[in-house]
Amino acid sequence: MKVTFKVNGKSETVDVAADTPLLWVLRDTLGMTGTKFGCGKALCGACTVHLSGNAVRSCQVQIGSLNGADVTTIEGLGGNHKVQRAWEALDVPQCGYCQPGQMMSASALLASNKNPSDSDINAAMSGNICRCGTYPRIRAAIKAAAKMS
């Protein structure tokens, strides 16, 4: 099935099976490997991207539902997004594998909540697993990013 949608502001047309998860379209069809595969079951958040600005698990979104959609991935965060700056300032990543997903969840949180409390952070971030245990730094980086312009 042919689907035309926007990824990071650029129009893309792909021709793949309609049930293909967005995750694999991004990674294998479009070659954008910043978005990670961790569980395939909405359990880990490694595949998190933005769909119309909201954080979604791309392993659960079928490409067939995305005609005309607007998707943002870690590559589209721009490199200078306040979340990325805060992550760098605090050296958040260890292995780094979960971090694109963490940053996509965090940037969606900050877009809707300028000053998240600890419990707001828990609610928004507990779907993202980090096996390296970078949670304390993620929390601190979200708070630091909230103070950046």
Binding site: G34, I74, E75, W87, D91, V92, P93, G96, M103
Partner: peptide, 27 residues
């Protein structure tokens, strides 16, 4: 002192095994 790999890891460009692509590769 900062980590030397953070910049790549916050931009999604650090190459993990699963991100490898070589010419002619199948999955």
């Amino acid at each position: 002192q900062k980590r030397l790999d953070t910049a790549a890891k916050v931009r999604g460009t650090a190459g993990f095994g699963v991100d490898t692509r070589i010419p002619g590769m199948k999955y």
